[in-house]
Design a binder for these strands. Sequence first.
DNA 1: ATTTCTATTGCGAACTATTCGCATTTAGTA
DNA 2: TACTAAATGCGAATAGTTCGCAATAGAAAT
Lengths: 153, 153
Amino acid sequence: MRIVRNRNEEMNTKKKVKALQTYNETGLRKTKQRALIMEIIRRERHLDADEVCRRARAEQPRLSLSTVYRTLQTLKEKGLVEEVHFDEAHHHYETKPASEHHHLVCLGCGQVIEFCYSLVHFIKEDVAEARDFEITGSEVRMTGYCPTCRRSK
Amino acid sequence: MRIVRNRNEEMNTKKKVKALQTYNETGLRKTKQRALIMEIIRRERHLDADEVCRRARAEQPRLSLSTVYRTLQTLKEKGLVEEVHFDEAHHHYETKPASEHHHLVCLGCGQVIEFCYSLVHFIKEDVAEARDFEITGSEVRMTGYCPTCRRSK
DNA sequence: ATTTCTATTGCGAACTATTCGCATTTAGTA
DNA sequence: TACTAAATGCGAATAGTTCGCAATAGAAAT
């Protein structure tokens, strides 16, 4: 564990409120890189880090892949971005959605469909109670074949 | 796509039946390595490749990590093993369970609890119909904190 | 039991995803 | 405008996984 000495933590209440109004209430500095990354994943969902970087470099050619990773990590910690896990051995990212949703992945063409299901929330509450867990996240992923890919098999 | 020329495919029916009785109906050759890997993941659930390899080497010190990866992959294709995805950027494996189950992971101590929920199956059928997908797999994962870890926070 | 055929293995190198250290730049203050 | 710490870019390091290939070893045929 390292000690995080965040500017905000040292401020008095009045200043803190002011600070929190900058950059989307996160207390993070506004940078072109971060804004662009945020914009890209807001526009297109469940990209992986490399895809984010490639898209971003169209506008900021010198953007570093490390920065992309660091930024996604930071935004995830701030709760603005969610990491999703498909079958692949790397992560995908998306802006935190208003309503909880889940993923249906076609193994043929790779398309990802998002779907909502209030039952999932119910399961979550139920599991939390049954196992006495404080549940912080849940992810439902289904894989299969879309109509088109099924036909061409 | 490469052409798979499997011995069994060339056999006549009579011989084929005989072959299928060897090594658990899979048509795979019986090897010490494969048997050991299978035994290890049957005994202990959701290990990752490296953990499987370390445990196996207690008995077969020269076992190669590549073999572990290849074997898990093969067994997965044959439907004997399932790959599960936690938050980490690598896979975990378990023998295919009799009944579909899901995972609850404690972010504090890392323990994994398996739970069953027939509702999940219902959701699966429902999504399949609504989106016209042939669904081949589903995975539900919840993360949070167990009672013990919650107390020590 | 011996031979034959090819699946499987071990090894090291290659590859992909991710993180880290550090010098440099830059946003937000004072 | 100057100061300070956050954020960036770069290249190296690490972790997980796959690949190529020669050597080994199951299973079928003799």
